[in-house]
Design a protein around this nucleic acid. Structure first.
Lengths: 329, 329
DNA sequence: AGTATATATGTAATCGATTTCAAGATATTC
DNA sequence: GAATATCTTGAAATCGATTACATATATACT
């Protein structure tokens, strides 16, 4: 029952442990000894210790994944993609859950970058200059998911394109008084980029927007959606096209519309973003955009593996989106 | 830039590497040296190598967490609880994401048993005899979350109690023709136990149920909820109380009710289970039960840490629930 | 006082593999 | 046939931590 080590195999095969190692790693070894070792390994059922190998080789075969919070549909699908690819490649996934706590992000970034992992995948919501500095200094490959970042390799979504395409949809039927409930512009991806997309579409349609009709939420929740929608419609009851930067925000807004007897999509078109499960639960069902979250996790993992094999150049991968047109437009 | 090892720390602190190790493992060490080592570690940012520790001590300071799928609100909150407690205690969390693939569960169970972890937390949906056998044979501590399991220590919810309490609610107002859309009884927790709770309440109210009015879904989704609701109401349009084993199933069922012009809660009371975000998004908002998912993760992690310190006896912890009464009852 | 007992610390062995080094055997080249 | 390149092999160093052992000091208990 005791573990069989390379020494046991060596003894049984009548060779040195170095030769057994050579057998395992295809080093120089005569045909005779090769046979003897093979036989000994089969007899004993020897399996080399991973830790010993890794210790000597200076590798950990594990990857740190830092996520801001795990209870989000998008994030968990990304993690799914990451784990699938990495475990397939024989890597362990170490999870760093930072919660809402921003200090913890840096803490994990530090813990990980100091030697327990071969690489890091960082799911960022906000990327401050401070973050970027740490990322850049890291001696291990880092892949950022979700934000475009010139400093390191990243995988992100075409937020602007998707937002523009959605806004195009809600501006059909001759709508002319659009509004936007966005997310804090501090968040480059879900915040700033989506609002840019909204603006671009509005401009292309030859419309002008009242700046008060662009409003941002502190976080992505239904409650915020409710609240901001009230502000918007109190201020301008004539809004006939509402772009919301997330499905939950849209759900909140639609609740307010229902309360006020504004009919969707007769009087107003609404869209969300993310294609979360609630987009089909609410009624009328919500037009939204689908991202390939799982794919982005997979891509990031693959990029990392590639980086690990040979230092490659920085890359950015932008993933596509898909518009899901439902009843709300 | 080179990695800092225990020797570097020892040199800087002016002690032997053994003393640094003692500091890390709470061995005998004078207050003075303890301070010196602490300072040196802070200065250098030293993080002990997992592989070296494992190789020598046979400990990894990491815990494997096996989850069936991560894209579920409940599961991700459990993981949140687990990671919080474990990282506080200096343990790393290794994530094993099995997807829907059942073989992969066993695979991960094996990967982890190759000696990469000190213990396992297993988030089980189904617990087949095969699973139980493997779990029982495991050479390190295993905690199961979500299912009651006599073979190993587990943390689970009072599914039966919650289901009964919810059924009590939908049977108010003199309802007399109840129905139940459950989840496959192969799932002990979300399946069998909840249906038992439903039955218990119905019986207590002195009602009899037509067996055709108890129906189960293959998985927890809105689509299944729709489909099963249609079957139920085609068969018995007089149903005036509908227990659904999950919020998503309930959302599907309510969609069907709306299509058929059956008013909730005037003509029928409906409840879901889980207190997911959609329970407040749909209209009328859904009466549901809240579980303490995060708490269950925390509890499981604590039990595991306890087990790790000294082999303790098997335990089962049953966590409470809370009924959230909304508009649908 | 004298003997346990607990605390404190460094040296060196150890975990199980890989890899360098040195040396001997073979094969190849001019 | 001498010089050089290519194989083949084992002994020993190495990776970075933990820990057995030896030793020294302080504290407690008859």
């Amino acid at each position: 029952m005791a573990n069989i080590t390379i020494k046991d195999v060596a003894r049984i095969a009548g060779v040195s442990s170095a030769s057994v190692s050579r057998y395992l790693n295809n080093g120089y070894l005569s045909e005779e000894k090769r046979e003897a070792v093979k036989k000994a390994i089969e007899e004993t059922g020897f399996v080399p210790s991973r830790q010993a190998r890794l210790l000597r080789a200076g590798e950990t075969h594990s990857i740190g994944v830092i996520i801001p919070k795990i209870d989000s549909e998008g994030i968990s699908r990304i993690v799914l993609g990451i784990t699938e690819v990495l475990s397939e490649a024989g890597y362990d996934v170490l999870l760093g859950n930072t919660g809402v706590n921003s200090d913890k992000e840096l803490e994990y970034l530090n813990i990980f970058s100091r030697g327990n992992v071969d690489g890091i995948i960082y799911l960022a919501s906000w990327l401050t200059p401070k973050h970027k500095r740490i990322l850049k200094r890291s001696s291990y490959p880092v892949i950022v998911i979700g934000q475009k970042c010139d400093e390191v390799t990243c995988v992100y979504h075409d937020e602007e394109g998707a937002a523009k395409a959605l806004t195009d949809l809600i501006l059909k039927r001759g709508r002319h008084d659009p509004a936007c409930i966005g997310i804090s512009e501090k968040d480059q991806a879900m915040g700033a980029a989506r609002i840019r997309g909204f603006r671009a579409s509005v401009k292309e349609h030859g419309l002008t927007i009242r700046e008060e009709n662009i409003i941002t939420c502190a976080d992505d929740s239904m409650e915020e959606g409710c609240q901001k929608a009230k502000v918007l419609f109190d201020n301008d009851p004539g809004i006939d096209a509402l772009y919301c930067a997330s499905d939950y925000i849209a759900a909140g807004a639609m609740k307010v519309l229902k309360e006020r007897g504004i009919r969707v999509p007769d009087q107003i078109s609404v869209c969300g973003m993310g294609n979360t499960r609630i987009s089909r639960v609410i009624s009328p069902s919500l037009t939204t955009a689908q991202y390939y979250y799982k794919t982005s996790g997979e891509e990031a993992a693959r990029l990392l593996l590639e980086d690990l094999k040979k230092k490659t150049l920085k890359k950015s991968i932008q993933l596509e989106y898909e518009i899901i047109e439902n009843e709300s437009t």
